[in-house]
Simulated scan of single mutants.
Amino acid sequence: MKTVIFALIALGVATMAFAHGGVKNPAVLARMENMKAISDQMKGLAAMAKEERPFDAAQIVRSLEQISADAARIPALFQAPETDPKSEALPAIWQEFDRFENLSADLSVAVTEVGAPENLTDLRSAVQQIGVTCKACHDPFRD
């Protein structure tokens, strides 16, 4: 399961890097940049969890705070059903906006629940928990 979560994070980062090129709608670009910011923070946490980067408790806290702040912005960024050919947002977001909004709130809750991981085991668990929360929203609402 851990390998799957780490692979999904890496795939999400790679996909977002290519997706931003040529986006013409500023609302869609703002959404994509917010999601990329979350992905970038998760990528850093995953690198620490896989011991590709040194464990840094202060950076972990900063990353989690940033993820929480970016997660709180998600509903407002998606309020209007803006589109762009490069967008991966599915129409289901606006058809089931309450569910979408609840899932974005779940991300903030997951970040709060993991607290401040103090060791590698806790960090790995935190990355997995947050990754599962991300996947729960990506599966129904992202192409």
Rank of each mutant, 00 (worst) to 15 (best):
F6V: 08
I93N: 04
V111G: 05
M35Y: 08
G12Q: 10
V4K: 15
D40G: 07
F141P: 05
D56K: 13
M48G: 04
Q128D: 13
K24W: 09
A57V: 15
V23H: 09
C134F: 04
A49G: 06
A19E: 11
D70P: 01
L123S: 01
G131R: 09
P81T: 04
V132E: 14
A69R: 15
A14C: 00
L103G: 03
D98R: 08
H20N: 01
F18T: 00
G115C: 11
R124D: 00
L123Q: 03
A7D: 13
A92E: 11
I74N: 03
A89C: 01
A17Q: 12
I60R: 05
A126Y: 06
R31W: 06
A126N: 05
L64K: 11
T3A: 15
G115E: 10
H138K: 10
A19K: 12
Q79P: 07
D139K: 15
E101T: 14
F55C: 02
E82I: 03
A105V: 05
R99C: 03
A49I: 13
M35R: 08
Q128V: 09
E88M: 00
T112F: 09
I9T: 03
F55S: 02
V4C: 05
T83H: 09
A80E: 15
K50I: 04
N25F: 09
Q41F: 06
L103F: 10
A89F: 01
K50D: 05
R99K: 15
S39K: 14
H20A: 00
D84H: 07
A17L: 09
F6S: 10
S39H: 15
P117Y: 13
L123K: 06
P26D: 04
P91E: 07
A105P: 01
A116F: 12
P117L: 10
A69M: 11
L77T: 04
M16I: 00
D56V: 09
M16K: 08
H138R: 12
P85D: 02
P140H: 13
R31N: 02
E52L: 07
I74K: 03
V61D: 14
E33I: 11
K50W: 14
M35E: 03
S39L: 12
I60E: 03
P91W: 02
M42P: 04
A49W: 15
N119A: 02
S104W: 03
V127S: 04
F100W: 14
